[in-house]
Amino acid sequence: MDVSSEPPFQKAYKTLIDKVDMIAVEVDWVETCELPVIDLSRLKLGEMEREECKREIAKASREWGFFQVVRHGICREILEKMRCEQRKLFKRPFYEKVNDKYMNFSAGSYRWGTPSATCLRQLSWSEAFHVPLADISGLAGLASLSPAMEQFATKVSDLALELAEILAEKMGHRSEFFRSNCLPSTCYLRMNRYPPCPHYSEVFGLMPHTDSDFLTILYQDQVGGLQLVKDGRWIAVKPDPQALIVNIGDLFQAWSNGVYRSVEHRVVANKQVERFSTAYFFCPSYDTVIESCIKPSVYRRFSFREFRQQVQEDVKRFGHKKGLPWFVIQN
């Protein structure tokens, strides 16, 4: 039995790889920049410092759709334990990772590559475990991973709620919407690994996309590779060992009537070094209705279930997500 931990990219996507000279992904050199860095410890200081910190969060969400937070209240020990357990998980044999009876995760939690890819530009050279927070405590066969995930998720959930309520407040809304609809049982953790890729100049680690949630909080290593669109061009994000990255998702763009921006981003492949990251997705229940908080609305009312179904249809039909443009009200 093959005990290799590596997904069989070369074998599974041989037909696409053999066409490498005919189809190439344009991953040119891009400028590296630092995202806005926001010190969240100021939220515990006087009124002036708190308000200035909140204004910076809202400004970055309007202008960038991305920002970094430091002194965020999640201790280094929790972050390092999460990364250690994540590395151990991905080192397990591939045949175990794809077999639910070995992993104790829900069916379909482990994902690798892009099954729907019809060309190299649609292929993501990565593997991931996409885990509902509701499943974490039941991971009986993963004794050391489960508490690490639970500690990490608890802290990041609190941070996501705090940031969402700040962004709502800066829109003039002090509602219970996020506290009532984005519960631990409706949110997700995604543990990502990007293996070294011999076709790094033709394939993405993760193809360009926007996130289908309210907020994403990312804990990444120092390898780098995350890129985003700013002012119509791709820029590379410089890793910061002290920071977590926060980005606005599609639902927040719709809820804020386009004030906060869900920005396209991607991960480029690396020829020599593997990359790890853990993403937390701040999501509502599928029945939650998303409605713009400012009138007249740019977007029509829709449920999260309807949005997710549309994304799945897009991927089947086009090979990639279209997302929010389907929900714009046509004048």
Rank of each mutant, 00 (worst) to 15 (best):
V3K: 12
C187F: 03
C119I: 04
V268T: 13
P147D: 06
P325V: 11
L324E: 10
R62M: 15
E165H: 12
T288I: 06
Q227N: 09
L123S: 07
K321Q: 10
T210R: 06
Y299V: 05
R42S: 05
I290S: 05
C53H: 06
V156L: 01
F204R: 07
Q309W: 04
K97M: 09
Q312P: 00
Q242R: 04
D314V: 11
I290H: 01
V289L: 09
K238R: 14
Q242W: 00
V70M: 01
L40R: 11
Q253Y: 01
E31D: 12
D314P: 07
R308H: 02
P284Y: 03
D287S: 15
S297T: 13
S157Y: 15
F90S: 06
V131T: 08
K101Q: 08
M149A: 14
P132K: 03
L189E: 01
E26K: 14
I294H: 14
H209L: 14
V131M: 08
E313A: 14
N99M: 06
P93K: 07
S116Q: 15
I217S: 02
G232R: 12
N104R: 09
L215K: 09
F94V: 02
S262T: 09
G205P: 07
D21G: 13
K81A: 10
A269H: 10
Q86D: 04
D250S: 08
S146K: 07
D250K: 11
A243T: 03
S256L: 08
A60T: 10
V156G: 03
E63A: 11
P195I: 06
L251M: 13
M149T: 10
V289M: 09
S185D: 09
E56V: 02
E169H: 12
S277M: 08
A236H: 03
P93N: 08
R62Y: 02
P241I: 13
R301E: 09
L324M: 10
E34K: 15
R308W: 00
K91C: 03
Y219V: 01
R275C: 14
C119E: 13
P93V: 09
E264T: 15
K14D: 07
N331Q: 13
S297W: 01
S180M: 11
F66Q: 11
C283W: 00
E96S: 05
L189R: 00
D221V: 09
F327W: 05
K155S: 10
R76V: 04
K97N: 12
A236V: 01
V37F: 05
L251Y: 01
C84L: 12
N270Y: 06
D28H: 07
Q272F: 06
D2Y: 10
K316V: 08
V156I: 15
Q242C: 03
H130F: 06
F129I: 07
D250Q: 12
K91S: 11
R62A: 15
